[in-house]
């Protein structure tokens, strides 16, 4: 099964001109969205952007490097709290908190990754699961509640658009998050399509061979943890700013599990999968709630299982398979030599 994933992770061909044009159209549509939908929907879309950054980060670790994490909610929480505390206690402007959150999570993730090096598969799942479960408890800890606000959490103010731009707060937040996401995706793309990405995949599929070929497995695995946590921390800070509130119980283990679900549903080891996954975890619970008020999570569970039946390799994987079939049907793909 690793081979399946390996194939899907093979670097795609250089983006064709038509593809770039498609991306440009998509970009314009996305930019127009805040003017087409309600404030609340804009807010929801902002969260989709935030989650897509998390999922990209988690995908670096789980999808590309094969290290499972059931505890990424913890890094998200750290990012969110760092941003909230900096804004609330130290009056740091909201945009300046984001690099701080990212940097701190990079360090924490890297340090967590060091002992985690010894753990694989289930054992790593347990360790990260434990991290996710402990985080709300740690935040509530009395010794630090002067900063964290304990169970009450911290309320922060929604930022106004700068330079007198003619936008409301929700619209501005949307563009702000979109800009940060663009930077993060650009970073992720460059990281994964190059030497580092190949090293991560090599470690995932053939750790011993990778080591033998001079890849420093320990270094890369810890680094994957760190970078993944950094993405998640950046998203956590954005999320805190968007929701204007942080509290321990917003970062329960369920959040971590949602992230993992998002990665798998979107598509393992796929950059675009992060967006599909983010759409799923943001909107499907709402849809489930509309279908059945009595047992919404049962409906959500049915959706999860249904998605895995129809698209066992995620949305991005299904799209890839679909295009491959279309191409084969069209018969336009010339036989490659070798």
């Amino acid at each position: 099964m690793t081979t399946e994933i390996a194939l899907s992770a093979a670097p795609a061909a250089r983006p064709a001109r038509s593809r770039l044009a498609g991306l440009a159209v998509l970009f314009i549509v996305v930019c127009a969205l805040p003017f087409l939908v309600s404030s609340y929907t804009t807010f929801q879309l902002t969260l989709v952007i935030v989650y897509s950054i998390v999922l990209l980060g988690l995908n670096i670790l789980t999808g590309y490097n094969g290290q499972i994490s059931l505890g990424h909610g913890a890094f998200y929480a750290i990012g969110a709290y760092v941003a909230a505390i900096l804004m609330d206690k130290y009056g740091v402007p909201y945009w300046a908190t984001i690099p701080v959150s990212g940097a701190l999570c990079l360090v924490v993730g890297f340090l967590f990754g060091l002992p985690a090096l010894r753990l694989e598969g289930l054992y790593l799942a347990l360790a990260t699961f434990a991290l996710g479960v402990s985080m709300p408890q740690l935040i509530k800890y009395k010794g630090i509640d002067t900063w964290t606000g304990g169970v009450q959490g911290i309320t922060i103010l929604k930022p106004d658009p700068p330079f007198g731009l003619p936008l409301n707060q929700d619209q501005w937040l949307f563009y702000f998050c979109l800009a940060v996401a663009a930077v993060m995706f650009w970073l992720g793309w460059n990281l994964l399509r190059g030497r580092v990405g190949r090293a991560l995949i090599a470690i995932r599929d053939q750790p011993i061979a990778a080591e033998a070929m001079g890849v420093n497995n320990a270094m890369y695995k810890s680094l994957a943890f760190g970078v993944s946590a950094m993405f998640t921390g950046v998203a956590g800070a954005l999320g805190a700013i968007a929701v204007q509130f942080v509290a321990p119980d917003s970062f329960s283990i369920f959040l971590s599990i949602s992230f993992l679900v998002g990665v798998v549903i979107g598509g393992i080891a796929s950059i675009s999968g992060a967006i599909w996954g983010a759409l799923f975890i943001q909107f499907v619970p709402n849809i489930a709630d509309q279908i059945s008020k009595a047992a919404p999570w049962a409906i959500y569970g049915v959706f999860l299982i249904g998605f895995m039946y129809v698209m066992p390799v995620g949305v991005a994987g299904a799209i890839r398979i679909f295009w491959a079939r279309m191409k084969r049907k069209a018969g336009s793909s010339p036989q490659r030599s070798g």
């Binding site: 399946e4 789980t62 499972i68 549903i265 569970g301 999860l304 299982i305």
Partner: peptide
């Protein structure tokens, strides 16, 4: 026959159901 993580998601689905 699906990848392990997909199976994990199915288990999570069962859990919430």
């Amino acid at each position: 026959q699906a990848p392990v993580l997909s199976v994990v998601v199915v288990f999570i689905g069962l859990l919430v159901i």
